[in-house]
């Protein structure tokens, strides 16, 4: 009897200690976002009216598909280069490995505005790349590189490759060395070990990295704003315009709802898939 009361009190202590943080998240994050999403369904024109008018607008559906396309491209490019780099980093000798990890952490800790700004200097009309190409005689007129989809993708890849490298280094190091040794001592070629042992074991980690990058680029603001401008409007920049320039709160709320639903769906679906196909799952 005393022990039961002791445990119950413990549970209550646990709840009490988590209460301030819980209240903060519920009160300032969940309730405001729920209110924004709920607000889109109280339109006098009808329950789904804001969504119908969103998808009836050619411009706004283009923005949605452009955002998805940019995010997908960013994710694929970051996966390919991130995996190759992470593989090399994970096999590097101790000292070099720490240096390479520091070199990947540093850009990650540098703000997004600074990192987008760097590409503004490189890709601009009088930017470094144009000057170099003109100087070398490769081109006669400066190329228009800014405010293109390519510029946004380059800026996003630059943003997310370090994240991919760091999370994949962790994944690759968690794969037991014995498994790879067993594979080669049983006669598998290095290529076979890579494709048939290492890669399948890394897939859950690749999925987690891909989700991080996809959702990150799907909701990024500063990079598309600086490198894409109005010509490459994405959902995040459209949301900002609707809210702060046109004061179209219903329109902005609709975009916010669409972004939230897509992001959460992707996170839940992919983490479910990652759990199911994990060959090392217990």
């Amino acid at each position: 009897m005393t022990s039961r009361r002791f445990w119950r009190r413990n549970g209550a202590t646990g709840w009490a200690l988590t209460a301030p943080a819980t209240l903060a998240v519920v009160g300032f994050l969940i309730v405001p976002i729920a209110a924004v999403i709920a607000g889109t369904f109280t339109d006098p024109r009808g329950v789904f009216a804001p969504y119908i008018s969103y998808f009836n607008s050619g411009f706004r559906t283009t923005v949605l598909f452009r955002t998805l396309q940019i995010s997908a491209l960013t994710t694929i490019i970051s996966l390919i280069f991130g995996f190759m780099t992470a593989y090399v980093v994970s096999r590097a000798p101790g000292k070099l490995k720490s240096l390479l990890i520091v070199a990947a952490v540093f850009p990650l800790l540098t703000g997004v505005v600074v990192r987008a700004f760097a590409w503004l200097i490189i890709l601009g009309r009088n930017g470094i790349l144009n000057q170099t190409l003109l100087g070398l005689g490769v081109i006669n007129e400066p190329l228009e590189m800014l405010y293109t989809q390519g510029a946004v993708v380059v800026g996003m890849v630059y943003l997310f490759v370090p994240l991919m490298v760091l999370s994949l280094v962790g994944v690759l190091e968690n794969i037991p060395k014995d498994v790879l040794q067993a594979s080669s001592s049983l006669g598998a070629s290095p290529m076979a070990t890579f494709w048939q042992v290492l890669l399948p074991l890394a897939v859950p980690g690749l999925i987690v990295g891909a989700v991080l990058v996809f959702t990150g680029s799907f909701t990024a603001y500063a990079t598309p704003q600086l490198l894409g401008g109005e010509r490459q409007t994405v959902l995040a920049t459209l949301l900002q315009q609707r809210a702060m320039v046109s004061f179209d709160w219903v329109g902005a709320s609709t975009i916010a709802a669409i972004m939230t639903v897509i992001t959460i769906t992707i996170v839940l679906a992919m983490s479910h898939i990652a759990r199911r196909i994990n060959p090392m799952a217990t």
């Binding site: 988590t18 994050l29 976002i33 924004v36 909701t219 995040a236 972004m259």
Partner: peptide, 30 residues
């Protein structure tokens, strides 16, 4: 053992939901 699992997830929510949506919601609702 005493606290439910979802409580841990609750505290990660601020980085799961799109930051820009959170900023807008805080402006509009709060």
């Amino acid at each position: 053992i005493e606290l439910p699992k979802w409580l841990g997830t609750l505290f990660v929510l601020p980085i799961l939901v799109p930051e820009i949506v959170f900023g807008f919601a805080l402006l509009k609702s709060f």
